[in-house]
Amino acid sequence: MYVMTIDQRGSTGDVDRVPGLLKELAGLSTGGRFERSVGDEVQGVVERADEVVDIALHALRSGRWYIGIGVGEVDLPLPASPREGSGPAFVAARAAVDRAKAAAAHVPLAVVAGGRTRKASTPAGAASNAAAGTAASAAGAAASANGTARSQAAANAEAVLRLIGRLVQDRTAAQWKVVDVLRSVRHGANGTHGTQKIAAQKLGITEQSVSRAVMRSGWQEEWAARPAAEMLLALADSLMTGTTEGDT
């Protein structure tokens, strides 16, 4: 499960942009629900890794948001409001958005994996202290290895998302105009010649102009890298069992 905390940048000298963001996010997540959590911050729970990537990159586009992604367990059943949710993923999302703020000069996004402390089981019956100690040690080693893998997957997901985010942040208004048309023509396309021809006709420009915009915007690179970010987020989420809270 993924918890996303998105905080407005420079809100003290800007208008409240939360209502507009909430409206935009409603169309990007099929099952997730976002709400204002406090002040100029929104929070939501998302089940699908691809939607996390969509939401994160959409928020990065405007340059007005810090994005924190917490990966891990949430306490079930989920409450009606994300503001009332709890669990390691919520704690991780808070840590993530704080880290994103520290990276504001770069790409303000962070991914943190949250774990829950789990006690090692004691051997059944009249097990000796030595046997119990061995079992606890083995369980602790397994949890530590799992936690390391989980944290690494989260760090790798963050690295890929920041690389893609840099492409998104650096696009000019003219490049976005082309990219938006290309996405509307064929959602998720990689800029094939036929798609670019249709986009050129819609925009009233030459195919060469569209081709240059695609190349300079890094659109093809973005869509080639998105699956890697999704896979790494899903991997971090799959490694929750047996992790320890101290890994966050």
Rank of each mutant, 00 (worst) to 15 (best):
L182P: 06
G63T: 07
A199P: 03
Q220N: 09
A131L: 10
P79V: 02
G140P: 00
V18L: 03
S62W: 03
R64Q: 12
L78N: 03
G165P: 12
E73Y: 10
G165D: 08
T172K: 15
E73W: 08
T117R: 05
A132T: 09
P19K: 06
I69Q: 12
L28G: 05
V178R: 11
A141G: 01
L239M: 14
T5I: 08
A132R: 11
G72Q: 08
G10Y: 00
L22P: 02
P123V: 07
S151G: 06
M240P: 04
R118L: 04
N129E: 10
S86M: 07
V45Q: 10
R212A: 15
S128L: 09
S29F: 01
A92W: 02
A56V: 15
D180K: 13
A213L: 10
M240R: 15
L21T: 08
L163Q: 13
T206R: 09
A154W: 07
G147I: 00
H106F: 09
T12S: 04
V178L: 12
R61C: 05
L78P: 08
H193V: 01
V179L: 08
L76N: 01
G165S: 07
Q201G: 14
D14V: 00
A105Q: 04
R186K: 13
S137K: 11
D170S: 14
R186L: 08
G27Y: 07
A92N: 08
R183M: 02
M231F: 06
N156L: 12
M215A: 14
P88D: 06
N129V: 10
A124M: 02
G68A: 08
Q175M: 15
V214S: 07
E221W: 09
M215T: 10
S11L: 00
E245S: 14
S238M: 09
G133T: 07
F90W: 13
P123R: 06
A155C: 04
R64K: 13
A139V: 01
I205R: 14
I67T: 14
G32D: 04
P82M: 04
V38E: 03
A126I: 01
Q43T: 10
Q208G: 15
T5Y: 02
N190E: 02
I205S: 11
L28K: 11
G31L: 10
E222M: 15
A136C: 00
R83N: 05
P123D: 10
W223Y: 12
L232N: 11
S217E: 12
A224V: 09
A80H: 03
W176N: 14
W223A: 05
E222L: 15
H187V: 05
N129D: 09
A104N: 03
T134D: 13
P227C: 07
L233H: 09
A199H: 01
D14G: 00
E51D: 14
A103I: 06
M231Y: 11
R183E: 13
V3G: 05
D54N: 10
G44D: 14
